[in-house]
Design a protein around this nucleic acid. Structure first.
Length: 458
RNA sequence: GUGGUUGUAGCUCAGCUGGUUAGAGCGCUGGUUUGUGGUACCAGAAGUCGCCGGUUCGAACCCGGUCUUCCACCCCA
């Protein structure tokens, strides 16, 4: 054999059974997106570099896959730039396009570009792959799917409430019980920073706070100190580390803590609204909890922040996230359009469902009936049968050669076919066929003209 | 991007301080059983030991490089 071919780092092939299981998730997500009134759009796999660069921070820029220009691109670079060997000045000259990094920024671009055709508020969903030049790990790939649902053109908190319901609806349908929807608000984080006197260091403050569950209180304090947050400020923030109790209790404590901050108070009010509405309508299987340490996410979030973590006991990063961004389209020149959205991480949800054994057994049945092939004459009759079954919508197939019965049965078995039809010389003579139920081994004989009776039993 | 880790049959993995023809289980193929799979028994096929180079009389094993896997940072779905 020649040297084995391979695929790039962080990418995967999907086998039939994997594709079926992935589609199972896609279908459920899509179904709920639609029942919540979201409309589908798609955008190109690659965008102009200007559209993407600078939208995700320095770290993000590094992770964007750039596409080389076509043609003899290097000859068009001036000598100074070329010999400087400086990537950041050379890259824009040889690459004008880049692969989509997420679905939110292309969506913002879409909204701005099509603003005159869109009826606001616009609820759109989008299920497409994105690419990141990240170092792969478990549940972390260079090509993966995002399933996004966003609403633009409405600043009503009702949207946040509905998005929480949407998360709950999808995970309930997937039988993935006990997921934790964590909720925070950027305004609360800003309020805290303001109250403790670290308002000008908000990003460093929140990034450090986000690590609380990972590196503990001491670790967080150490990092804050290293990032230039004063000791007195950290001292003032200490109550955050001991924020516990029910959601309402936490809110009350926050309200007290943030009473001197206008923005902080606003954040508490917003959270309270969402929690109260959700309490009224109830959730089916998900948990909703306040988590002030939740700071994940891009710097464009301005209001609510969501993150969904897998049920306890499953080692997996977040399986979904989202939030409100008051000014997302602003970066493309359209002011005062507020948006809020959530995302489902298909690939990670897949890993979680697989680990917990939550994929339904039946989805791997890609065939309802297989006819055993006993030779030319018998096969002709079996083909007639198969044709009738197919036109009745039954997924039926006939084994292509009259291989040994054992082999054909084994094939049916490994394909998870629930029924096998036997139509040999004897049956041909009697104008009958035998149906074998592969799960219990029972066999039943039908006349040719009684095929509908068999179909009815499927 | 930083530090570490992994790669041996289709799959999961053994393989001693370097020493003849590199092993197991599962799977696969054939048979026991020419009209019965999922169980059992028997037999068989299948590996330039990730790739390139070096050290050595001799390398799956030691050294360097490279790709890949996973892990911790970073960041994130």
């Amino acid at each position: 054999m020649a040297q084995k071919p391979s695929i790039p780092k962080g990418t995967r092939d999907f086998s039939p059974s994997e594709v079926i299981k992935r589609n199972y998730i896609f279908d459920i997500v899509k179904k709920h997106f639609q029942t919540f009134g979201f409309q589908p759009i798609e955008t190109p796999s690659f965008e102009n570099s200007d559209t993407l660069m600078g939208k995700y921070g320095d770290e993000g820029d590094r992770l964007i896959f750039k596409i080389l220009n076509s043609g003899d691109f290097i000859s068009k670079v001036d000598d100074v730039t070329y010999s400087s060997k400086n990537s950041s000045s050379l890259t824009p000259k040889i690459s004008e396009k880049a692969l989509r990094y997420d679905l939110t920024v292309p969506f913002a671009r879409y909204v701005v570009q099509h603003q005159n055709e869109i009826d606001f508020p616009f609820k759109r969903y989008q299920i497409q792959p994105v690419w990141r030049a990240d170092r792969p790990q478990k549940g972390r790939f260079r090509e993966f799917y995002q399933c996004d649902a966003d609403v633009v053109g409405s600043d009503s908190l009702l949207q946040e409430v509905e998005l929480v319901q949407l998360y709950d609806a999808v995970f309930t349908s997937l039988k993935l019980e006990g997921v934790n929807i964590k909720l925070n608000n950027r305004k609360i984080l800003a309020g805290i920073a303001e109250v403790i006197g670290a308002g000008n260091n908000l990003i460093n403050f929140t990034v450090a706070l986000d690590k609380l569950d990972k590196i503990g209180e001491e670790g967080v304090k150490k990092e804050m100190l290293a990032k230039g947050i004063s000791e007195t400020a950290i001292e003032k923030a200490s109550p955050l580390f001991y924020l516990n109790g029910s959601n309402t209790e936490q809110l009350d404590k926050l309200q007290y803590l943030l009473s001197s901050s206008e923005v902080g108070t606003k954040g508490v009010e917003e959270l309270r609204f969402i929690l109260e509405f959700i309490e009224e309508v109830g959730l089916q299987s998900a948990k909703l909890s306040i988590d002030v340490t939740l700071a994940r996410g891009l710097n464009y979030y301005t209001g609510a922040i969501f993150e969904v973590s897998a049920p306890e006991g499953v080692q997996m990063g977040s399986i979904g996230g989202g939030g409100r961004y008051d000014d997302l389209t602003g970066i493309f020149g359209l002011k005062n359009v507020s948006g809020v959205g959530i995302s489902f991480g298909l690939d990670r949800i897949y890993l979680v469902l697989e680990e917990l054994g939550l994929f339904p057994k039946t989805i791997e049945q890609s065939l309802d009936v297989l006819c055993v092939n006993f030779g030319e004459q018998e096969a002709l009759e079996a083909l007639r049968l198969t044709t009738q079954l197919r036109s009745a919508g039954v997924r039926a197939d006939i084994y292509p050669s009259d291989a040994k019965m054992q082999k054909q049965m084994k094939f049916a078995n490994s394909r998870n076919v629930p029924y096998v039809i036997l139509l040999g010389a004897q049956e041909l003579k009697d104008k009958t066929f035998v149906v074998k139920n592969m799960s219990n081994g029972e066999q039943e004989t039908y006349n040719f003209d009684a095929i509908d009776d068999f179909i009815a039993k499927l």
